[in-house]
Design a protein around this nucleic acid. Structure first.
Lengths: 215, 215
DNA sequence: GTTTAATTCAAACGTTTGTTTAATTTTGTG
DNA sequence: CACAAAATTAAACAAACGTTTGAATTAAAC
């Protein structure tokens, strides 16, 4: 990768990522970023060309990290296919919960219908991840653990979609289940556990031959 | 409901809904709306107070329609609980696919973390729908069709989340499955069918005692 | 027909936006 | 030190934004 950023550039990237995540891309001005990063307004254009290309740089940096982590799970010879799927679920939940706002930002960009460098970058990233998971499924089928005719994109949609949806409506989930007395931290722990179990049992039902367990 | 809009107000609401859906709220200017609706810019403030209250009015109008349709399914005495769930799935898919852009708009608003009249309105809407579905699940449990200890919010998150996710990444789904030669119409039909089957078998696995069928 | 209220309009208001300029300072190199 | 390149700055730019104004027009009420 040709991505070698100076310390100052990294600060701008970090600050912008946080602000974009919290307030959205349109909702964040370059002046906000400059103020928070303690640099002159002109530095953003100077270093990155434009506000939009700054976002592009942020996503590029993120994509690299995701790909590496995913590969390390898939290629871990010590794990069975079922274990890999479970690791995948837990890893994704962990990643998503620890950077909620950033994933909100990605969601927002995906919602945009317009063709853009960013949209095509996200698509490419998705394809890479999908190919890795395809390997994993194929391995499971070869070993006889998984059934044939698995619609991987649908399965992915359920994992990502359910997690996204639950995240965006977590306050609602808390209210419905009368969990207001819990601390924020405890609630998130509880939510993650529930979601993890839910997704794993769903995937067991989709992927394997046996019915999923009741708790 | 006190919502009685003049013809001109309805035109503004329709046009604004379309534009907000296509370009987002921040991405649509009141000048865009005025031009498309063929009214003076000042009319939007005059009738609705502000751009934000205009969006509020659009969501209020939408919520009413959704509630009525949901009630008609839940209270249909001719259907069994399982059938009702299947109707629910198909109805939601139908609703979502026929107004994709509008649901993208709702998603975008849900992604916003800020407290706002619109956020609380969406939350209230969600609670209403949830209570209706709770009735449906309780009916199924009483009749012995559904198992106990069903996490309804999690189930809803899977339905809404999977549909949303698949919708926002449909171009990707098409590419991965080599369906570019299909017409747009045929592809959407295909996608709906796949999604419907996927969700129904997931729900069978979640709700009932038997394992779901393979195709 | 007269009066009062509701509607419509072009224009302007005051901000805020992303980006650029041109001058200045800092840094690196020989 | 001297010179060139890079970095940084305050200021200005033009464009777009949501909203308001005050006059002009239409509709409604009596």
């Amino acid at each position: 990768m040709e991505s070698t950023f100076s310390d100052k550039q990294k600060i701008i990237l970090d600050v912008a990522q946080q602000l974009f995540a919290d307030q959205g891309f349109a909702g964040t001005s370059v002046r906000d970023i400059a103020r928070e990063a303690d640099v002159n307004i002109a530095m953003i254009s100077y270093y990155f060309g434009s506000k939009e290309k700054l976002l592009e740089a942020i996503f590029k940096r993120h994509a690299e990290v995701v790909r590496l982590r995913l590969e390390s799970i898939i290629h871990n010879a010590a794990l069975s296919p079922v274990q890999k799927v479970e690791h995948l679920v837990d890893h994704y939940i962990e990643k998503y919960f620890s950077k909620q706002n950033f994933h909100r930002l990605i969601m927002r960009e995906q919602l945009s219908t317009k063709e853009s460098p960013i949209a095509s970058m996200l698509a490419e990233m998705k394809t890479q991840n999908m190919n890795l998971i395809k390997q994993l499924i194929a391995e499971g089928q070869k070993k006889g653990n998984f059934r044939k005719n698995i619609d991987i994109p649908l399965m992915m949609a359920t994992m990502l979609g359910t997690t996204n949806q639950l995240m965006t409506t977590q306050a609602f989930y808390r209210q419905v289940n009368n969990l207001q007395s819990m601390s924020d931290e405890d609630f998130l722990k509880h939510l993650r556990k529930k979601l993890s179990h839910h997704l794993k049992s769903l995937f067991k039902a989709i992927l394997t031959h046996e019915a999923q367990n009741t708790k």
